[in-house]
Design a protein around this nucleic acid. Structure first.
Length: 280
DNA sequence: GAGGCAATAT
DNA sequence: CATATTGCCT
């Protein structure tokens, strides 16, 4: 019982956006079927008054069979009554924010408890599946490993070092969130710290976008898209900020669409964007 | 079944 | 290219 114990929770809370802040932006979970079926409402006449659906109960959501409203046309096999069955969920887009939540969860869970299931539960992100987390966790571990090998300079911190030529694959995303020091080296003398497990439930909005065609979301640095130069980090943040503005403006309940890093798709590739509306 | 990880697929 | 999926193992 150190003084830290009394602090971790406060910090943990602080990092999260308030429900009120989430409200304007968060949409209820738009089920793939629904989104696809309706092809997402047009941006100019969105749903001005969207209701938010809170789930006060802690639940590992397996939103895989809830809504099944067909748009009327259905060639469905059999009769066309059954709920969504073999529908594929869109690819999950790991925004820096979402990943931050991921990292926070892992950090607070401790290495031992940081397994896909628990992480997923702690994150409490609607629509997030165990597989999503598992896949990302795998990559994240590789990232950490890579970094341990290169952790020479005495930055004393745990930040992304130079990334050049190695595996610049995911560095961009991962570098955007602070990596707890204990991650880099196994607990020493510290058995483990377990958490009381407090089910914080913040609702994250889910946006499914159907975009014409955008290629890479995370472009190389120094490549301005609309004639504006920006930093890699900023560019990402700005993209998100744009999204937020649209929502907070209250004018248009616009779904993410124009934003390059928002819900986008390459020729029919649907993308799921869960975004928290909070700080970075 | 759940997890970890490498390979492979989209 | 970022995720998803699969295979094989513990």
């Amino acid at each position: 019982m150190r003084e830290e114990d009394s602090n971790w929770f406060a910090k943990w809370e602080e990092e999260f956006p308030k429900p009120e802040e989430l409200m304007p932006l968060s949409q209820t979970l738009i089920t793939p079927d629904l989104a696809i079926a309706f092809d997402i409402p047009n941006p100019t006449s969105p749903n001005p008054q969207n209701k938010q659906q809170q789930t006060p109960i802690v639940q590992s959501s397996q939103p895989n069979s809830s809504a099944e409203f067909e748009s009327g046309e259905l060639n469905g096999p059999g009769g066309g009554d059954e709920p969504a069955r073999t529908l594929k969920r869109p690819r999950l887009v790991w925004t820096p924010q979402l990943h931050k939540r991921f990292v926070d969860s892992v950090a607070h869970l401790g290495i031992k408890n940081a397994v896909p299931k628990t992480i997923m539960q702690l994150m409490s992100v609607d629509g997030l599946t165990r597989e999503n987390v598992a896949s990302h966790l795998q990559k994240y571990r590789l990232y950490l490993k890579r970094m341990q090998g290169l952790s020479n300079s005495g930055s004393g911190g745990s930040n992304a070092q130079s990334l050049s030529g190695a595996d610049p694959a995911m560095d961009n995303l991962f570098a955007s969130s602070p990596v707890p020091a204990h991650f880099l080296h196994p607990a020493r003398g510290n058995s483990d710290q377990f958490m009381p497990f407090v089910p914080h439930h913040h609702h994250m909005g889910v946006v499914v976008g159907h975009h014409p065609h955008v290629q890479q979301q995370y472009r190389q640095f120094g490549s301005p898209r609309n004639g504006h130069f920006e930093h890699p980090f900023l560019s990402r943040q700005q993209s998100q900020q744009q999204v937020q503005r649209m929502g907070t403006s209250g004018h248009n309940g616009n779904y993410v669409e124009d934003v390059d890093s928002a819900a986008t798709d390459v020729n029919g590739r649907k993308v799921l964007t869960l975004f928290p509306t909070g700080d970075d």
